[in-house]
Amino acid sequence: MNESLSPNGASKDNDVSKDIVWHEDTVTREHREVNLDQRGCVVWFTGLSGCGKSTIANELDRLLIEHGAASTLLDGDNVRHGLCAPPAVLAVEHGDEFATRFGLGFSAIDREENIRRIGAVTTLMASAGLITLAAFVSPYRRDRDRVRKMVETSGQEGDFFEVFVDTPIEVCQQRDPKGLYKKAIAGEIKNFTGISDPYEAPEKPEIHLTHREDATPTDQAKEIFDALLRCGVISH
């Protein structure tokens, strides 16, 4: 890792606050990875709502655990209950002023902060040697690229695996497990990706999962699992 950078990619010498100092750990990332017999990394699932991100990520998590790997999974809906909670959730415990300042909705700038927070967390987890799975719509290419930079600055190039779950919007609408597309089309949900907000597909994802009727989530998870084996993230 470049010693002039902190793991989030910011310069240690040009921080806004000189009172915030980066402390190197006594136990290094290399120590943790040797102890776990794996390489810490982030597997980032992106795609439209209903494309299958969470289902495939959960299957991959299961395959990794069964293999003896140390993995963890961050899911888009789950983090909205805590780390990236909307104002209405925060207001209950913290009041309106706090909720307005720190709660996240679904505007472009809120989505940017949502992914920034998650990116920081996944970077810390990968630095601890964990295979970190993240399943988020993450519609903007710039935000995903920023997470890649954070992860690879903390470790090395190749520690970030972008997985594009490329399911046609027509299929996602047919599935619509939470009824979100129906609400978005009816105008009941604003800033909904694919309907009233854009989705910027990855240009060069490490893994591109195209929609196939004969491919199960386990099949697709196995494809990613095999890629992690080939890259040396996990051993045979």
Results as ranks from 00 to 15, higher is better:
residue 206 E to I: 14
residue 200 E to W: 11
residue 68 G to C: 14
residue 208 H to T: 07
residue 85 A to L: 06
residue 116 R to N: 13
residue 41 C to M: 06
residue 211 H to A: 10
residue 145 D to W: 10
residue 99 A to T: 06
residue 87 P to M: 12
residue 17 S to P: 12
residue 170 E to K: 13
residue 14 N to H: 11
residue 46 T to Y: 01
residue 108 A to V: 06
residue 91 A to S: 12
residue 69 A to P: 02
residue 97 E to S: 09
residue 73 L to W: 06
residue 156 Q to E: 14
residue 1 M to D: 13
residue 99 A to W: 11
residue 19 D to P: 02
residue 104 L to C: 01
residue 197 D to Y: 03
residue 72 T to L: 15
residue 198 P to H: 07
residue 137 V to D: 00
residue 212 R to F: 06
residue 112 E to Y: 09
residue 173 Q to F: 10
residue 55 T to L: 13
residue 204 K to D: 09
residue 214 D to A: 14
residue 55 T to V: 13
residue 187 G to C: 15
residue 168 P to E: 07
residue 160 F to R: 00
residue 14 N to K: 15
residue 120 A to Q: 12
residue 230 R to V: 05
residue 43 V to Y: 00
residue 172 C to M: 04
residue 34 V to F: 09
residue 78 N to H: 11
residue 234 I to K: 01
residue 80 R to G: 07
residue 79 V to P: 01
residue 183 K to H: 06
residue 101 R to H: 11
residue 146 R to F: 02
residue 135 A to L: 11
residue 195 I to M: 14
residue 174 Q to T: 13
residue 112 E to N: 09
residue 52 G to A: 03
residue 6 S to L: 10
residue 223 E to G: 02
residue 119 G to M: 03
residue 115 I to M: 03
residue 176 D to Y: 07
residue 221 A to V: 04
residue 193 T to D: 07
residue 100 T to F: 12
residue 107 S to D: 13
residue 12 K to W: 14
residue 48 L to H: 09
residue 216 T to I: 07
residue 106 F to P: 01
residue 213 E to G: 02
residue 83 L to T: 12
residue 108 A to G: 15
residue 170 E to F: 11
residue 173 Q to P: 14
residue 29 R to L: 01
residue 221 A to F: 05
residue 205 P to R: 03
residue 55 T to R: 15
residue 224 I to N: 00
residue 81 H to V: 08
residue 79 V to T: 06
residue 37 D to F: 09
residue 200 E to Y: 12
residue 149 K to T: 03
residue 122 T to L: 12
residue 113 E to F: 02
residue 28 T to I: 06
residue 202 P to N: 13
residue 50 G to T: 05
residue 166 D to A: 03
residue 142 R to K: 12
residue 207 I to H: 01
residue 235 S to C: 15
residue 59 E to T: 01
residue 173 Q to D: 15
residue 2 N to S: 06
residue 204 K to Y: 04
residue 108 A to K: 08
residue 110 D to N: 08
residue 104 L to D: 00
residue 144 R to H: 02
residue 98 F to A: 14
residue 27 V to P: 13
residue 24 E to N: 10
residue 85 A to W: 03
residue 118 I to L: 10
residue 101 R to W: 09
residue 170 E to A: 13
residue 20 I to S: 09
residue 51 C to I: 06
residue 137 V to T: 02
residue 140 Y to N: 01
